[in-house]
Design a protein around this nucleic acid. Sequence first.
DNA 1: TTAAAGTACATAGCATGCTATAGTAAATAT
DNA 2: ATATTTACTATAGCATGCTATGTACTTTAA
Lengths: 149, 149
Amino acid sequence: MSLDRHRSAGYMINWAARVFTPAIDLRLKPLGISSAHLPVFFALGGGDALPQKVLAVAAAVEQPTMAATLNRMERDGLIKRVPDPSDGRSSLVSLTKTARAKVAAVSEATREVNEAALSGLTDDERGALFALLEKVIVALSQDATARKG
Amino acid sequence: MSLDRHRSAGYMINWAARVFTPAIDLRLKPLGISSAHLPVFFALGGGDALPQKVLAVAAAVEQPTMAATLNRMERDGLIKRVPDPSDGRSSLVSLTKTARAKVAAVSEATREVNEAALSGLTDDERGALFALLEKVIVALSQDATARKG
DNA sequence: TTAAAGTACATAGCATGCTATAGTAAATAT
DNA sequence: ATATTTACTATAGCATGCTATGTACTTTAA
């Protein structure tokens, strides 16, 4: 096999993702939080109460994935769900007082990890990395659409 | 919350990884193969018989993860395990005839997906993406080591 | 040579992601 | 007004990743 894994974008990106998760989780663990909770924290940290659907879109995950994450967060006392008065199918999700008290620390932890990850990169390189990843995401999203539709 | 997800390396890399997986799986599905099988295919495609440990290292996953992947591949008739005559603890893993017949198609599928992912990038940009990802991986690996040791 | 330490693999238990499907409420069309 | 379609959530079942732990074989040290 001639394929060098260091020249495979899929392999490298997957690897990077799998090295990111423990780095962030290490810092979030003392807070009783994990990486999948982050998009929820960012979406609700301002005090909003939002339906699950909105959170799933914000996190770029499927609805059942967000449902499972919210179940765990509810179990752990991080979020609460209140029936949406204007829509009987929906609940409004918000952070508990406990979780709100952690928002600043969560924000700092993510800042730290991103800084650690990008520490060897110049500002230009950081910008380049984000731009290139975005291009890859767009290209693959179109690929998926083209093959489905 | 001031954190823009498009400026979070962790978020972007994770997202890229999650858009890669379906793209490759879409092409591998007709072959009865999935993305986690790839490192095994690349390691054993030449006809070698290797112990699980070597495969785990090649795939950059933990031992129990590789064990589970090999269990599924064995169940699906893609690999076989033979006791290692020189080490009673170990088995030698190799591709079945069925799997070997798919090696070329698997290789082509991964080439296709990588090309789709990188289609919007110049050669220079491709090189830059790999180099930047490698830097991020190295930085985070050191971060993990520093925080554990 | 025998005891201790190390190594390879298996298993348990969990988190996070997915698709497919079902149930109920809301919105739309006839 | 009712029937159809659409939308939001829940659930089931699976794949892939992890850590922690157990078991059995090898290797090393005393």
